[in-house]
Each structure stands twice: as C-alpha cells, then as structure tokens.
Design a protein around this nucleic acid. Structure first.
Lengths: 153, 153
DNA sequence: GAAAAAATGTTATGTTATAACATTATTTTG
DNA sequence: CAAAATAATGTTATAACATAACATTTTTTC
C-alpha cells in the first residue's frame, strides 16, 4: 500500500470516529492534492478535478470539498496566497498543538510547513496579550525565498 | 494644523526627498483612509472616493494609488483579509525596522499594529534559517478577538 | 518647445468565492 | 420498513477582488 493510500485510509478512520464522512468527491479532491505537493488555487484544483474525474464539475464542488478537508485539518488554506495544500502531518499521529509557520517561497511557489518552537509562539501570544488580544488562529505565513531557489544546483 | 494635515505634509516632504510625487489622487485616497482607521477593502475605498471626489472613478484609480502608498510605506495591505489600512507610524520619525505584528479582530474588524520584539522575530528568522529560507516580508497577521470585543463595556 | 517619462483615463477581462435553491443520497426514528 | 430529517451534491447566478492593455494627459528633462 503506497503512502497516499495509507494516509487516505487513516484519514477515513479519523473521520469515521468523528462522525464525519470522507465521501468520494472529498477523497478525489484530496487525492489530487496529494499528488501535487505545491500549493494550488481552488480553480487549479478544479481544473485537475475536471480533467481527471468530472469535466462538468463546478467551483462549488471543489470549494465544498476543500472547506470540509480544512475543517478536519487534512488541508491548509494559505490566506496570503489563497491557495490550498495538504497538511504536512496528514496520516501521522501528531496533529497541530502549537503554532505553525508556513514558509512560502515567492520564487518557486513551494511551501515548507514548520512547527514553531513553543518558546516563540508563547512570546507571540504574550505580545498579543499586552493588547488584550486573544488569537484564535494558529498559523503565520512568511514569504521569502527557499533554500533551493537561493542556491540552485 | 490638525494631525492629518501634518501627517500629509510630512509625507509629501518624504516623497519629495525620495523623488516621488504625492499627487492629488494619492493624497485624496490617503485622506479617506486617514479618516477611517478600520481596515477597508479597495472597493470600499473606491466607493468613498466616488462619493467624495469623483463619481466616475474606476477601480484602477484606487488600486494604483494604494499600490503607490504601499510602496512608500504609508499604508499596509493586509494579505489575509485583502484590506488596506494607514500605517500606524505615518508621519513619525520611526519607520519599520524589524517585524510587524498585525492583530486583526475577527469580531469588529479592527486592527492593532504592533512592533515585534527583536528577540521574537530573530527567533522566527532563526527557525526559517534552519530550512535555508530567507524571509523578505516583515509582517505577520494574527487573527483573533481584541480586548474591546472580549470585554464589552 | 520637443522628446521622454510619469500619471491617469478607460475598457475589458481574469480570478477568487459565495448565495440561493433544487435534487439526490444517507441516516434516523417511529 | 417507510416517513421524516439531515447531509451531500448539482446548478445557476452573481458578488468581490485585481490586473492587462492601450489611450490620453500631465509633468519633467534636455
């Protein structure tokens, strides 16, 4: 069983336990995303979906699947670029506890998902607390240039 | 001379020194934004511009002014909400050196602009460096609930 | 004052996302 | 099991955000 199948199976189990359903459409969308590690826009995913599964699929179909997958933490939506990407932890025990740092390469469009050190996000929270502000999101997005693009082979 | 006029005058001086021009349109857009401390979408600003200055103004007019104002660090674009807001430092000596934290209230739509402690953003940079990633943006956006909205009077 | 550069006007279109309502599939419950 | 309720999907339309491309005007430079 390949990695994607295993991830899919584990996710299906997770859903079942949570009383949610990983329907065919949702699986198909996730499948497409697993095969494409780079972040993609909803409309790019729609195109892939149309090519592969159903030429008549509409935006809503993909958006609904993406929203569901985001709810169950299977995918992330990158607010700054309006793109979607499979969660790096998919199919692992470990889910998100603290903050996530998304490192987005402006050159190649690639993404690195990094768990922030606890010490760092606690400091971020502390700074916010000075202003009596309570964060409810747990990710930050940082744009820049990745290692690959800085030192091309 | 009121605060806005003073800020405008100082900005004009800054522009002059940098060989850039704070044209009437750009001033007008900034003026509207100064009168509206909450972040606004480009189209909201366009509406205000149409009401106040020119009913026939088009989106491009506002977008061009906003892009210019962003270039000279007079306004910020909030990527996660696609809104624009006047820079909190406008008209002060102090400009951005390190990282900025934008605290966005999901309840009231308000914004608090906070300079990150150097120790914190250095840690962020250090974490990014592990992945040979070089950030080129210097702001992060954190969503949550502000003090006002948590403890309504 | 002619040429070049910068800003603005104008039209069209591309991109992202959701509202609203109809239909179908699945689950619950009497 | 059948009716009712809920969840998911289909479908159409449109709202909201943003830029391309080219024309015209204004400003600067020489």
């Amino acid at each position: 069983m390949d990695t994607h199948s295993r991830q899919m199976a584990q996710l299906e189990e997770q859903c079942r336990q949570a009383g949610k359903k990983l329907t065919p459409i949702r699986q198909q969308v996730l499948q497409l995303m697993l095969q494409h590690p780079q972040p993609q826009s909803a409309y790019e995913i729609l195109q892939a979906y149309q090519s592969r599964y159903n030429p008549k699929a509409q935006p809503m179909t993909v958006y609904r699947a993406l929203n569901f997958l985001e709810e169950i933490d299977a995918v992330h939506r990158l607010a700054s670029t309006r793109q979607y990407v499979v969660c790096d932890h998919l199919g692992r025990e470990h889910t998100h506890h603290g903050f996530t740092q998304f490192l987005l390469c402006d050159r190649c469009g690639g993404l690195q998902e990094v768990e922030m050190e606890q010490a760092v996000w606690q400091k971020l929270l502390a700074e916010a607390a000075i202003y009596h502000f309570t964060p409810n999101a747990s990710a930050i997005e940082i744009h820049g240039v990745c290692g690959q693009c800085q030192n091309p082979a």
